[in-house]
């Protein structure tokens, strides 16, 4: 299991998502593990994009900065694709990632319908392990450092990563570990 986090790919969609993902993964990363953060600019494919490319690139800079703020100088990869999940898989293959790690972004069914459910695609179409970590929440991390008592100190989870109790976190998302060993385990 130690190999699972040898080289993790963090798909990060927004500054908030980057903070949550980096916060969640930090306690589990050993000295040997390396991280590649990937941000995908969704292209309309032959039509004007939702926002200017230059605008999205500058936002990507903010997103990567948010990852670096938590995890130090990690590798980053900016991709352009009409399907976000395809770009994530391509990045995972290019970087030979041992696992794709993210925190769920929540949101109602309607919101998912509007924005496209990237999570579902990633989980159902993956060719390598996918690890979903609970968002442990900003309060938990900062409180833990400032007063050293209340809140879920991430270190306590690190000793027992597979059984990280989601109730400790500020998030209501459920922790789950999804794994699929090879390309033959695609969902129907």
């Amino acid at each position: 299991m130690t190999d699972l986090l040898a080289r993790v790919l963090l798909p990060v969609a927004s500054v908030e998502d980057a903070q949550a993902t980096a916060r969640a993964v930090a306690p589990y990363l050993g000295d040997a593990g390396s991280v590649v953060a990937v941000h995908v600019i969704e292209k309309a494919g032959g039509a004007p994009d939702k926002a200017s490319v230059e605008q999205r690139e500058s936002y990507a800079g903010e997103v990567f900065d948010a990852v670096r703020e938590q995890l130090g100088d990690v590798e980053t990869d900016l991709r352009f694709d009409t399907a976000v999940e395809d770009a994530i898989f391509a990045a995972a293959a290019d970087h030979d990632a041992s696992a794709i790690v993210f925190t769920p972004r929540g949101g109602s069914r309607w919101l998912r319908l509007l924005t496209g459910d990237v999570t579902l695609h990633v989980v159902t179409e993956t060719d390598r392990p996918v690890l979903v970590l609970p968002d442990i929440g900003e309060a938990a991390v900062e409180g833990g450092e400032a007063e050293g008592s209340v809140g879920a100190a991430p270190e306590s989870e690190a000793s027992n990563p597979e059984r990280a109790d989601p109730a400790d976190g500020a998030s209501d998302d459920t922790a789950s570990v999804e794994e699929s060993a090879g390309g033959d385990e695609h969902a129907p």
């Binding site: 969609a13 927004s14 969704e42 926002a51 200017s52 999205r56 949101g107």
Partner: peptide
């Protein structure tokens, strides 16, 4: 971008990735 209006007007939505 040129600060003719506040750049805050151009924040990207974290979920929708739109201005």
């Amino acid at each position: 971008r040129d600060n003719i209006v506040s750049p805050d007007l151009n924040k990207i939505h974290p979920r929708f990735a739109t201005p």
